[in-house]
Simulated scan of single mutants.
Amino acid sequence: MSDLNDPRVFFAAERTLMAWNRTGLTLMAFGFVLERFGLFLHMLRQDASGAGRDLSFWIGIAFIVLALGVMSFSIVQFRRVLATLKPIEIPARYCTWAGMAMNLSVVLLGFALLAYLFSEL
């Protein structure tokens, strides 16, 4: 339990949650770019066998999965921090679940992106 009785502790935890969200989004975008870069290379080579799934595809997928893991773990960590705070440290009528909902929605959209990438060939 925190003994600071200061709402800044809560806001610092929320800023950390959003920083992990930005990190996850960046990793996901980088993974998507890597995956598409392999497709671009196949087009440049005019590969007759089709796009296929080469190393850039799997590295891109790994970055997207890493992003999903980072954002999911950040939700768990934020909930752990919330459990340690006293009610005085959380501003009255402040929505504590909004940041977690944003991270969760990005995770769900990330899974949709993975499904799209695996279905497209």
Rank of each mutant, 00 (worst) to 15 (best):
K86C: 05
T96Y: 00
Q77G: 01
Y94S: 08
I88K: 15
R93N: 12
S72H: 06
V81C: 05
I90F: 06
I75C: 05
F73A: 12
W58A: 10
V81R: 05
A51N: 13
I64G: 03
F63R: 05
P91T: 11
K86E: 07
I64L: 08
A62Q: 02
S56R: 02
Q77A: 13
Y94F: 10
G69C: 13
I59R: 15
M71V: 07
R53N: 08
G69K: 12
A62F: 07
I88E: 15
L82M: 09
T84M: 06
S72L: 04
A67L: 14
A92Q: 10
Q77H: 11
A83C: 04
G50P: 15
F73Q: 15
P87R: 12
P87A: 06
F57V: 12
D54R: 05
I88A: 15
V76M: 12
A92G: 10
P87V: 03
S56Y: 02
A92C: 09
G50C: 15
W58I: 03
P91Q: 09
R93A: 11
L68F: 02
L66W: 13
P91V: 05
A62N: 08
F78K: 04
F63W: 02
R93M: 07
L55R: 07
I75P: 02
L68D: 00
I64V: 01
R53H: 10
F78S: 00
L55N: 01
V76H: 06
A83T: 03
I59A: 14
Y94K: 13
K86T: 12
V81N: 05
K86D: 03
T84W: 03
I88H: 03
E89D: 01
S74M: 06
L55E: 05
R80D: 12
I59M: 08
K86Q: 13
I59P: 00
I61Q: 10
A92K: 15
R79L: 14
G50L: 14
D54S: 00
R93Q: 13
L68G: 09
W58L: 12
I75W: 01
S74T: 01
A92H: 11
V76F: 14
E89A: 01
R80M: 10
I75H: 02
G60T: 01
A67D: 12
L85I: 05
S56I: 02
I64P: 03
A83H: 05
F73K: 11
T84I: 01
T96Q: 09
D54N: 13
T84S: 08
V81E: 09
R93K: 14
P91E: 06
A62Y: 03
I64F: 04
G69E: 03
V65R: 10
I61N: 02
L68P: 00
G60E: 04
S56E: 03
I90S: 04
A92R: 09
S56H: 02
E89L: 03
G50Y: 03
R53I: 00
F57K: 14
F63D: 06
T84G: 04
L85Y: 08
Y94H: 11
L68N: 08
W58S: 09
I88S: 14
T96E: 06
L66H: 08
I90L: 12
L82H: 04
P91R: 12
G69N: 13
A51V: 08
I64W: 04
I75T: 04
R93F: 14
G52K: 12
P91H: 07
T96N: 02
E89F: 00
F63Q: 13
P87D: 08
R53Y: 05
F73R: 15
I88W: 09
